[in-house]
């Protein structure tokens, strides 16, 4: 009975980090989405200068561990503006994710049939209009499976902002384990909580994918 009681208290403490974890994931994914799509557009449709910039961003960021990116950017951001650890950490994760997302969207843009651009231009659209209203909607759908995979990766990588002191699931598990001196229980609960989160997210993404799948 006492053990069950302890489990419940520990769980209750850790689960308060759930919204922080989801918040970090959401902000990072959103930042990564913006960066990823822009960089992919530059990489595929930009002039040589922007192509090089986008390619460098993608190749260099993906060669460095996410946690190193988080560290560097956290200190860089802190040197310019006074942001909360939550925002700074999420932003840093977003910049890292943007590089991976840019690869996903680049593949998606390249998979759109070549006739689509020509057809859009033929009815009088500008290049920009064609990208925005014809190619992007198709690329977004084509990118869904890869993006879903990246989303679960970001969810798991959100534990990395623990190092800058954001009170997400892992941080809270560490705090409670320092108090109860039962790290196995604390980290075990955090692990299972995450398992539930990723399984739920996978289900959600599969549902979205089924709904919006684009057949070529």
């Amino acid at each position: 009975m006492e053990f069950v009681q302890k489990l419940v208290t520990t769980f209750n403490f850790i689960v308060q980090g759930l919204w922080v974890t989801l918040g970090v994931t959401a902000v990072a994914l959103a930042v990564g989405l913006l960066l990823g799509i822009s960089m992919a557009v530059l990489r595929v449709y930009g002039n040589p200068f922007w192509r090089t910039v986008a390619a460098l961003y993608s190749v260099l960021v993906r060669a460095v561990p996410v946690i190193v990116i988080v560290f560097v950017l956290f200190f860089v951001i802190a040197g310019f503006v006074n942001l909360s650890p939550f925002l700074a950490g999420s932003l840093a994760l977003g910049v890292a994710s943007g590089a991976y997302q840019s690869e996903i969207f680049r593949g998606a843009f390249q998979a759109v049939l070549p006739g689509q651009m020509v057809a859009a231009r033929a009815i009088g659209m500008s290049r920009r209009q064609a990208i925005q209203s014809i190619l992007l909607p198709q690329a977004l759908r084509l990118a869904l499976p890869g993006w879903g995979n990246e989303a679960t990766l970001v969810l798991k990588d959100s534990t990395l902002v623990f190092v800058v002191g954001v009170p997400e699931i892992l941080r809270r598990a560490q705090q409670v384990s320092a108090r109860t001196l039962e790290p196995f229980v604390a980290f075990g609960i955090a692990l299972l909580l995450y398992l539930a989160l990723t399984l739920w997210m996978t289900q959600l993404l599969q549902w979205v994918e089924r709904r919006y799948r684009l057949q070529i």
Partner: peptide, 23 residues
């Protein structure tokens, strides 16, 4: 596979390093 792929590496690491001594 599901257990490993569905959970963050960092928690796995802490569970092994800090948690296993409990067992």
């Amino acid at each position: 596979v599901v257990l490993v792929q569905g959970t963050p590496l960092l928690i796995q690491l802490f569970l092994v390093y800090y948690g296993l001594p409990d067992l």
